[in-house]
């Protein structure tokens, strides 16, 4: 019996959407199971780290890794998987560019932890308990102490390729089942694209596959930016031409313009195109290019820009961690995290 390719799937800082997209393959999943052996997949099967360690180096054909690298544990696991795998694929926006969790890089770790565990409106934490490296739990009834160890967080969230060598990327937040399927086909065909390629998606920006592109006026010029929570888009008219900040022009296609079909502007989850160095940088020069101000009135332009409350979150929604300016300076070791706490 000829050996089937061995596939590993690991999750780092992820929301679960990527795993969901795997399940969304639906009946096509059966074909996947026919074609490959899954050797490691903590989301669905009970494998342990030791199981991977035992495998010979280079014995995994493809390792799919989703989520950003936030914890020491992620770092160790992906390094291990790199050693054991022929091909490593960054799966989804978080793994490829840091994703939404990467926006935490706007703060240093202390600020981020305080926000997360003390300040957000949905949290109730009167004792102000923060994560601790080691917790010693006294259990008087059993006259014993139990020790719990949590993996240490890294000072900033990193995209996968800042930690290990990455062969391919599958874009999306999460990748659509079709994109995943296309990528699998390409990889299993043995006809491998050049290293570093983004697989499964389009080589053109989203406008190419958006049906509203035909409705664009000859020149796209906008005077103000609208937001879908404040104004209702007209149907069947390019959202950008209506003034909605659509990231379509600057974002890789491949999703078949799903959001646009739902009357929501593209937020850019398929990321940058080949040859672009920095997604947000390109996005800003694109917005600058369509602002309709001549002669330039400082105040008016400021008004237009102020209409978007969170610029970083808009232009780097999925890629701050991989941007040229990727994090707040001084993201040092957190002071608030205690070494040991006994409760």
């Amino acid at each position: 019996m000829s050996e089937k390719p061995k596939v590993a799937w690991y999750w780092c800082a992820s929301c679960g959407g990527c795993e969901e997209s795997f399940v969304d393959l639906a009946e096509r999943l059966l074909k996947v199971f026919e074609a490959v052996d899954i050797v490691f997949c903590p989301v669905a099967m009970d494998f342990k780290r030791e199981d991977v360690e035992k495998l010979p180096d280079g014995s995994i054909t493809v390792a799919l890794i989703n989520g950003g690298i936030r914890l020491k544990e992620h770092e160790e696991m992906v390094k291990l998987l790199r050693k054991k795998s022929k091909i490593v694929i960054a799966y989804g926006a978080c793994s490829a560019w840091g994703g939404i969790p990467g926006l935490a890089n706007l703060y240093n770790l202390d600020e981020a932890l305080e926000r997360k565990y003390l300040e957000v409106p949905t949290i109730e934490n009167p004792k102000e308990v923060l994560p601790t490296k080691k917790i010693i739990v006294n259990i008087p009834e059993a006259k014993m102490k139990a020790e719990l160890e949590l993996p240490e967080p890294l000072p900033v969230l990193l995209p996968l390729d800042k930690v290990i060598d990455v062969d391919y990327y599958i874009p999306g937040c999460p990748p659509t089942p079709d994109v995943f399927w296309n990528a699998l086909q390409a990889l299993l065909s043995g006809n491998l694209p050049p290293k570093g390629a983004i697989v499964g998606a389009s080589n053109r920006s989203l406008c190419d596959e958006c049906s509203l592109n035909e409705t664009k006026p000859e020149k796209v010029l906008v005077k103000e930016f609208k937001r879908p929570d404040k104004a209702k888009p007209e149907p069947n008219k390019c959202l950008l031409a209506q003034g909605f900040l659509c990231m379509g022009p600057v974002t890789r296609g491949g999703c078949t313009a799903l959001c646009i079909k739902g009357n929501m502007p593209c937020t850019g989850c398929f990321g940058l195109l080949d040859g672009i160095v920095d997604y947000g940088g390109k996005a800003i020069s694109y917005f600058g290019s369509i602002l309709d101000y001549s002669p330039v009135e400082d105040k008016e332009i400021k008004k237009a820009f102020d209409s978007i409350p969170d610029w970083v979150g808009t232009i780097y929604k999925y890629s701050l961690a991989s941007a040229k300016l990727s994090h707040k300076a001084g993201a040092k070791k957190p002071k608030r995290i205690k070494e040991v706490v006994e409760i």
Partner: peptide, 8 residues
């Protein structure tokens, strides 16, 4: 992609 940003 024919996004037309350059045209303007």
């Amino acid at each position: 992609s024919g996004c037309a940003i350059c045209v303007g």
